[in-house]
Amino acid sequence: VSSEIYQWVRDELKRAGISQAVFARVAFNRTQGLLSEILRKEEDPKTASQSLLVNLRAMQNFLQLPEAERDRIYQ
């Protein structure tokens, strides 16, 4: 997982004009609270716990989908 993931998520929230709650639900089936905590802490993926890595990997995989497909999912 790239250490850029945190910025990618922030950029996607702005680009798509969606809330953290929507992104958390569709990208990795978690709550806004968890996403907020992940973004606030910005732990280095190289030293992250296994559970954090699973979530970061799910977010990264979601962000690799084509933009149009992500936008459809947000609706």
Results as ranks from 00 to 15, higher is better:
Ala21Tyr: 09
Asp44Lys: 06
Tyr6Leu: 02
Gln7Ala: 15
Glu43Phe: 04
Phe62Asp: 03
Val1Glu: 01
Phe23Asn: 02
Asn55Tyr: 12
Asp44Ile: 03
Ala27Val: 07
Phe23Leu: 04
Trp8Cys: 15
Asp11His: 14
Gln7Asp: 15
Pro45Ala: 03
Asp71Gln: 07
Arg15Val: 00
Ser49Cys: 15
Ala68Asn: 10
Ala24Tyr: 03
Gly33Trp: 13
Arg15Lys: 01
Asn61Ala: 13
Val26Lys: 04
Gln32Ser: 11
Leu35His: 04
Val1Leu: 03
Ser19Met: 03
Asn61Asp: 14
Glu37Cys: 05
Leu52Glu: 09
Ala68Phe: 11
Gln75Pro: 05
Ile73Val: 12
Ile38Glu: 03
Gly17His: 15
Glu37Trp: 04
Arg25Tyr: 05
Leu53Pro: 04
Leu53Val: 10
Glu43Val: 11
Glu4Ile: 07
Leu56Cys: 05
Gln75Leu: 11
Leu34Thr: 12
Glu37Pro: 03
Arg72Met: 11
Arg10Pro: 01
Leu65Pro: 03
Gln75Trp: 08
Glu69Ser: 08
Pro45Cys: 04
Arg57Met: 14
Tyr74Thr: 01
Arg10Ser: 06
Arg57Ala: 10
Ala16Tyr: 02
Gly17Trp: 04
Arg15Ile: 00
Ala68Thr: 12
Pro66Ser: 09
Leu53Tyr: 08
Gln7Val: 15
Pro66His: 06
Gln64Asn: 12
Arg30Asp: 11
Phe28Trp: 03
Gln75Arg: 11
Arg40Asp: 15
Ala16His: 06
Lys41Trp: 06
Met59Gln: 03
Glu67Tyr: 09
Glu37Ala: 10
Glu67Met: 10
Lys14Asn: 14
Val54Tyr: 11
Phe23Ala: 00
Tyr6Thr: 00
Leu13Asn: 00
Gln7Ser: 15
Phe23Gln: 01
Gln32Glu: 14
Leu13Gln: 03
Asn29Val: 04
Tyr74Asp: 05
Ala48Arg: 02
Ile73Lys: 07
Glu69Cys: 08
Pro66Arg: 07
Val26Tyr: 06
Ala27Met: 06
Glu12Val: 03
Gln64Trp: 10
Asp11Ser: 13
Phe28Cys: 09
Gln64Ile: 09
Tyr6Ala: 03
Gln32Asp: 11
Glu12Gly: 05
Gln50Ser: 12
Ile38Tyr: 11
Leu39Ala: 02
Asn61Val: 08
Phe23Tyr: 04
Gln20Trp: 02
Lys14Asp: 12
Leu39Pro: 04
Leu53Arg: 09
Asp44Ser: 11
Gln60Ala: 11
Ser49Ala: 10
Glu4Pro: 03
Glu43Ala: 09
Phe23Thr: 00
Gln60Glu: 09
Leu34Ala: 11
Ser3Lys: 14
Leu35Asp: 03
Val54Arg: 13
Glu69His: 07
Asn29Leu: 06
Ala58Asn: 11
Arg10Asp: 05
Asp11Val: 08
Leu63Gly: 01
Glu67Pro: 11
Leu56His: 06
Leu53Met: 13
Glu4Thr: 13
Glu42Met: 09
Ile5Ala: 00
Lys41Arg: 11
Leu52Thr: 13
Tyr74Met: 08
Met59Gly: 01
Leu13Gly: 00
Ser51Ile: 06
Lys46Pro: 12
Lys46Leu: 12
Gln50Ala: 13
Arg30Thr: 15
Ile73Trp: 08
Ser3Leu: 07
Glu67Phe: 05
Asn61Cys: 11
Arg30Glu: 15
Met59Cys: 10
Arg40Trp: 09
Pro45Ile: 10
Leu65Cys: 06
Phe62Cys: 01
Gln60Leu: 06
Val22Asn: 07
Ile73Ser: 13
Glu67Leu: 10
Leu65Thr: 09
Gln60Phe: 08
Glu69Ile: 07
Ser2Thr: 15
Pro66Tyr: 00
Leu53Gln: 11
Arg57Pro: 02
Glu4Ala: 12
Phe62Ser: 02
Ser19Trp: 01
Gln50Glu: 15
Pro66Val: 01
Arg72Phe: 12
Asn29Cys: 07
Ala27Thr: 10
Tyr6Gln: 00
Ala27Asp: 01
Gly17Ser: 15
Ala48His: 01
Val54Glu: 15
Leu35Arg: 02
Val26Phe: 01
Arg30His: 12
Ala24His: 01
Ser2Gly: 10
Glu67Gly: 05
Ser3Trp: 11
Ser51Asn: 14
Arg25Gly: 08
Pro45Thr: 06
Thr47Leu: 12
Lys46Arg: 13
Ser36Lys: 12
Phe23Glu: 00
Ala21Arg: 12
Arg10Leu: 07
Leu34Glu: 14
Met59Ser: 00
Glu4Phe: 14
Phe62Lys: 00
Leu34Ser: 14
Ala58Met: 13
Ile5Ser: 01
Phe28Leu: 13
Ser3His: 10
Thr31Leu: 03
Pro45Leu: 07
Arg72His: 14
Gln75Cys: 15
Ala68Tyr: 12
Asp11Gln: 12
Ala16Phe: 06
Val9His: 02
Gly17Ala: 06
Gln75Lys: 14
Arg70Asn: 04
Asp11Leu: 13
Ser19Gly: 09
Gln60Asp: 14
Ala16Arg: 03
Thr47Asn: 13
Ala27Phe: 08
Val9Phe: 03
Leu13Tyr: 04
Leu63Val: 06
Ala24Asp: 10
Leu52Lys: 08
Leu63Phe: 05
Leu56Arg: 02
Leu65Met: 12
Glu12Arg: 01
Leu56Ala: 00
Tyr6Cys: 01
Ser19Lys: 06
Gly17Thr: 06
Thr31Asn: 10
Asp44Phe: 02
Gln20Glu: 09
Glu67Gln: 08
Ser51Met: 07
Val9Pro: 00
Arg30Asn: 14
Arg15Asn: 05
Met59Val: 08
Gly17Val: 05
Leu13Glu: 01
Glu69Thr: 10
Pro45His: 00
Ala48Glu: 01
Arg40His: 09
Ala21His: 10
Glu12Lys: 03
Tyr74Gly: 01
Gln64Tyr: 12
Ala16Glu: 02
Val9Trp: 00
Gly33His: 13
Asn29Ser: 09
Phe62Thr: 03
Asp71Ser: 05
Asn29Met: 06
Ser51Val: 08
Trp8Thr: 15
Gln60Arg: 08
Glu69Gln: 14
Val54Trp: 08
Ala21Thr: 14
Ile73Met: 10
Ala68Cys: 12
Leu13Asp: 00
Gln32Phe: 07
Asn61Gly: 09
Ser3Ala: 09
Arg72Ser: 13
Leu34Phe: 13
Leu34Trp: 11
Phe23Lys: 03
Glu43Lys: 09
Gly33Asn: 09
Thr31Met: 05
Ser2Met: 15
Glu67Asn: 10
Asn61Lys: 11
Pro45Val: 11
Pro66Phe: 00
Pro66Ala: 07
Ala27Lys: 03
